[in-house]
Design a protein around this nucleic acid. Structure first.
Lengths: 138, 138
DNA sequence: ATTAATTTTATAACGAGTACAAAGATAAAA
DNA sequence: TTTTATCTTTGTACTCGTTATAAAATTAAT
């Protein structure tokens, strides 16, 4: 499989020692830009990787976080969600279906760290919530 | 007690039927602008209200939320936090001590709902994270 | 005063996430 | 290659925030 090597190399860029599990998880994140939860990742990979443990998925994503390969979204009260897209963008969560969507093309000023707050700000997270169009009718 | 009546009236403004417990919780929120967790509220009130149940605190804050008297902050991975300040402001959470601080005086444009996203946005939440000055030295 | 409706309370249950220790896999040394 | 050491994965148990539920208590209505 060709992708395996690509993802393998991708992991090395973040100084993450590749393993079968880590490569599978990263591959899933690269191909599924849906801000998945741990459970969604586990459920998706489990069929083709029956020995996979959910603990491994937790460990793997904590490692990816440390290494700066993913960001954790704190937008969903229920679960943590993960995003490999590290570019400046915001998110929308539908209060009904719970799906999280990207919002790109916002003015870069929105992501600037405010000055003179008395805090050393490392991270900015902009989250919108409401109802998505699919849920609108219901 | 004079405050009791004030808080009582405050609750009525949001069409919340006052009770001893609800008044105590709202009074706490009005006086402690620290974005407390359920547990912090419960622990603070419990000594002077020994029969208070933590479930009541949960129920009460869910009611306040429904009635629009408080907003729930989704900034702390561990617990939900609550804020009676409904004005346009952002928050900073210290990754070390976990305290949540207000950030006022940001440009109002930051809180505008982006157009043409395909979602009906009801809410905007801007969250910063990093290390606060008290934790800086450690 | 009785009855009905709300609210509070305690307990149990659920589910996300972590701790831990054993088993398995990989890398290094001999 | 074998042995040894290190790292990774796995399953289980556990913690803790939150919700479900049903009984008890309080408040409102008749």
């Amino acid at each position: 499989m060709n992708n395996y090597l690509q993802t393998h190399r991708y992991l090395l860029q973040f100084a993450i020692k590749p393993s079968v599990q880590r490569t599978a998880v990263m591959d899933y994140l690269l191909k599924n830009r849906t801000h998945p939860t741990i459970d969604e990742i586990y459920s998706a990979l489990s069929p083709s990787m029956p020995t996979l443990s959910k603990t491994t998925v937790y460990n793997t994503l904590n490692l990816f976080l440390e290494k700066g390969a993913v960001q954790q979204l704190v937008i969903d009260e229920k679960n943590a969600r993960y995003d490999i897209d590290m570019s400046l963008h915001a998110h929308f969560i539908c209060k009904q279906c719970g799906k999280v969507h990207d919002i790109f093309n916002l003015k870069p000023e929105l992501f600037e760290k405010p000055e003179n707050t008395g805090f050393s700000i490392q991270n900015v997270e902009i989250s919108y919530s409401g109802i998505c169009n699919s849920c609108k009718g219901n």
